[in-house]
């Protein structure tokens, strides 16, 4: 029971981060019908910038701000510089280009920092509180929940309560009509990419401390978040969040009860199961598109 509670909390904490990362994928998918395969690499860049700034200034918070700002900037750069030129052609070329970007980014990070594993700073302790003899959650876990909640609620408010959000929804839903009604769709796409990369940066700040910082630190996270997004249906922000939590929980139980080596195999099994049983995702109400 004690173990179950611990695994549940831990799984939800990881799941919250997967949710944020999946949300970033969904943001871009809704706007451009592109799965950003470079998302993981972009998030790693932000994490390295956070690492450098934090080590140089001694302040975690400066590093975190630098990471988010760099994430936003990188999103703009990748969209304006590269993805813009492929967004409307075949899905294959978008995938190829995104993978090329991720290869390039990983190589540049490797050239600048090498491939050594580095410990990543945390703002709060990762030693869990104990209630009685139960180890439940750590201050960092609380921080994770708080940050992800702020991100998710912030994005929800942005989409439903602001004119920028309305423009983004309009552009994603009917780009031509939105353009006729005076929405600068191209700029909205850039904002979407920036936002997604910013969210990805936040997710990397939260997930990398649980392991080490290295150039391919986000590979498995990307795959997991993609799984979460697919479970949610790729189209639904709510689905992404729920999918992230579900995936986090399941993986936590798998790694807790079957061994941590099995975790990544668990991701694969889960992804295969979802793709084959409910390819449209568990949360899409609309007529499922053929995937």
């Amino acid at each position: 029971m004690e173990r179950f509670v611990f695994l549940t909390v831990d799984g939800l904490a990881h799941g919250a981060i997967y949710a944020a990362f999946a949300l970033a994928l969904v943001l871009i998918w809704r706007g451009t019908r592109v799965v950003n395969f470079a998302q993981g690499a972009m998030a790693v860049v932000s994490a390295y910038i956070a690492y450098s700034v934090a080590s140089a200034s001694g302040s975690y918070w400066l590093g975190a701000i630098a990471a988010i700002v760099s994430g936003l900037a990188l999103g703009v750069l990748v969209e304006r510089g590269v993805m813009r030129f492929v967004a409307h052609t075949a899905p294959l070329s978008a995938i190829v280009v995104a993978l090329g970007v991720s290869l390039l980014i990983a190589a540049v990070v490797g050239i600048l920092y090498g491939v050594d594993q580095r410990p990543f700073p945390v703002p709060f302790s990762r030693t869990p509180y104990t209630i009685g003899s139960y180890a439940v959650f750590s201050p960092f876990t609380l921080f994770t929940f708080g940050v992800v909640a702020v991100v998710v609620i912030g994005i929800a408010l942005l989409f439903t309560r602001t004119s920028v959000g309305l423009r983004m929804r309009a552009s994603a839903f009917a780009p031509e009509t939105a353009r006729l009604l005076g929405v600068n769709v191209s700029r909205v796409l850039t904002v979407g990419w920036a936002l997604a990369a910013g969210v990805g940066a936040v997710a990397s700040l939260l997930i990398i401390p649980t392991a080490f910082l290295q150039p391919n630190a986000m590979d498995l996270v990307f795959v997991t978040a993609f799984t979460a997004a697919v479970i949610g249906g790729l189209d639904s922000p709510v689905g992404a969040v729920v999918g992230g939590l579900v995936v986090g929980l399941l993986l936590s139980y798998v790694s807790g009860y079957l061994g941590s080596n099995v975790t990544s195999i668990g991701v694969l099994v889960l992804l295969v199961a979802v793709l084959l049983l409910r390819p449209g995702g568990l949360f899409t109400m609309r007529q499922a598109r053929r995937v």
Binding site: V34, L268, L275, L276, P279
Partner: peptide
């Protein structure tokens, strides 16, 4: 599995396979 999937979904599935394979060896 692939015959039921298209574009990014198939890419995502095969990506998962390739990321996971090393841990099968372990």
């Amino acid at each position: 599995a692939a015959a039921r999937l298209r574009g990014p979904y198939l890419a995502g599935l095969t990506l998962a396979i390739v990321v996971v394979v090393p841990s099968i060896a372990t």
